[in-house]
Design a protein around this nucleic acid. Structure first.
Lengths: 138, 138
DNA sequence: GATACCGGTTACCTCAAAGATACCGGGATA
DNA sequence: TATCCCGGTATCTTTGAGGTAACCGGTATC
């Protein structure tokens, strides 16, 4: 909670577009990971979530708050200070995220390989209707 | 593989809209579950996936095939017959789906409860800016 | 004054996924 | 001839997540 979040904690060449697993909406899992180490402020979260706009971060956090995944604490200070923290429920997602990451480590290369092979294969214009009866199109 | 798929195998009042976990696109996980018991034909898959349009099912299956999750076997018969089957990679998603289901069983009620409580709570027009310094808005 | 800070809000736009509906080929069957 | 079946396509429309840009209030500092 003390040290700032690593701006590089999420790979910009993120293979998430290839990941067949998604937790919540697009940013939820990353927010959970950002909050894993303790409470964080709004603008603190924006650092590793590069490219997220305040609007979308607000939406994400509100939705998570609604679902009981995070708490929001606003302090009547100046300048304003707001802190977000995982609830026990939100923390329970960590095991699921870990499972997803384990799957990724074990199987994502195979998926990407299959995809690359498929994409570079000669595109059949009328796929396999005329293929031999037992051919596999994979 | 022999017995037909249960049309009710996916709850129409599906809480998937509340599920913060998603495997692949909207239908991928359900397709994996449909194929868990063995190969299935196109129209066989449409039964439990009530409401899916052929276009979307085709898209889903093509994407899964591209990613090496399923194989597609077309037989030169009449009427045409096409069978889809899980690959080892596709089967590996089953553990992840099981983890998601376990999370659901353990935690989804709490999430829904939090959501209901949030939705029925008196909506603060100017949320908690004027709240006491240590109040939690959850 | 003018500016900066924090944590947003608001209005508007974009774009891809998903759905609705209709249609297709081609052999088998009637 | 006509119809059915299967596994899709083709085309249009809708929807909604997400992005862009501008602005806000209240205080403190310049």
């Amino acid at each position: 909670m003390a040290e700032p979040l690593d701006p590089q904690m999420f790979d910009p060449v993120c293979p998430s577009s290839a990941m067949p697993i998604q937790i919540g909406d697009r940013w939820t899992a990353m927010v959970v990971l950002c909050l894993e180490g303790g409470r964080r402020r709004f603008n603190e979260l924006r650092v590793p979530l590069r490219g997220i706009t305040p609007k979308v971060l607000t939406q994400t956090l509100r939705a998570m708050q609604r679902d009981g995944l995070v708490t929001r604490t606003a302090y009547d200070e100046n300048p304003p200070r707001v802190e977000y923290e995982l609830t026990a429920l939100g923390r329970s997602l960590l095991t699921l995220i870990a499972a997803a990451r384990a799957w990724r480590d074990d199987h994502l290369p195979a998926l990407l390989e299959a995809r690359a092979a498929h994409d570079s294969s000669p595109a059949p214009s009328r796929p396999d209707r005329t293929a031999p009866p037992d051919s596999r199109t994979a």
